[in-house]
Amino acid sequence: KKIKIDLKKGPEGLGFTVVTRDSSIHGPGPIFVKNILPKGAAIKDGRLQSGDRILEVNGRDVTGRTQEELVAMLRSTKQGETASLVIAR
């Protein structure tokens, strides 16, 4: 099931960490939400869960991207702006 979640970045950030699983010589594996932090946009919104697979960030497919690339995409969202995620659960 795909779910679109918009998180408005506040002073505590987006409020979640990510982890890559099953990376191989063929490229990075899928990226999942690792933890929801006690402060930040994710816990206020309440929909994002540990174990959700991140498919898109701000309309860009993240398949084949590294964890570092995904984190850079999320960090490029400025405070007060919205990060738009599509996740699979």
Rank of each mutant, 00 (worst) to 15 (best):
G15N: 00
V57D: 01
R89I: 00
G59D: 03
Q79D: 09
I31M: 13
K8Y: 09
I87H: 02
T63E: 06
R47W: 05
K34D: 14
D45F: 01
K44T: 11
K8D: 14
E81A: 12
N58L: 03
E81C: 12
L7G: 00
E68K: 06
I31N: 14
G51V: 01
E81N: 12
I25P: 07
A42M: 02
I31V: 05
G10I: 15
K4A: 04
Q67G: 04
G80N: 14
D6T: 14
K78Y: 06
G27Q: 10
I87K: 01
R89F: 00
G13E: 08
V86R: 10
R65I: 12
K78E: 13
I3Y: 12
G64Y: 06
T82L: 12
T77N: 15
D52M: 02
S23I: 05
K1V: 02
I36F: 03
T63C: 07
L70N: 02
G59A: 04
K4T: 10
L70V: 05
I36P: 00
D22E: 09
I31P: 01
E69C: 07
Q67S: 08
L55Q: 12
A88Q: 15
G15A: 00
I3R: 01
V57Q: 01
D22Q: 15
V18L: 15
V57P: 01
A83T: 15
L37A: 09
L74V: 13
A42L: 02
I3F: 13
P38E: 14
G51W: 13
Q79I: 04
L37M: 06
S23A: 07
L48T: 01
T63R: 06
I3W: 03
K34I: 15
I36D: 02
S50G: 13
D52Y: 00
D22V: 11
G27A: 09
G46K: 08
H26C: 11
K2A: 02
G46A: 08
I54K: 00
A41V: 10
T82A: 14
K1I: 15
D22I: 09
I43C: 05
I87W: 02
E56L: 09
T77Y: 14
I43L: 06
P30K: 11
L70P: 02
G40K: 01
S23M: 12
T20W: 09
A88G: 14
G15I: 00
L37Q: 08
R47H: 05
K4R: 06
L37D: 09
D61L: 07
E12Q: 05
I54A: 00
I54T: 00
T63N: 09
Q49W: 08
M73P: 02
I5P: 00
K44R: 06
K8T: 11
R75D: 15
K34A: 12
G13H: 03
K39T: 10
K9F: 15
R60M: 08
S76K: 14
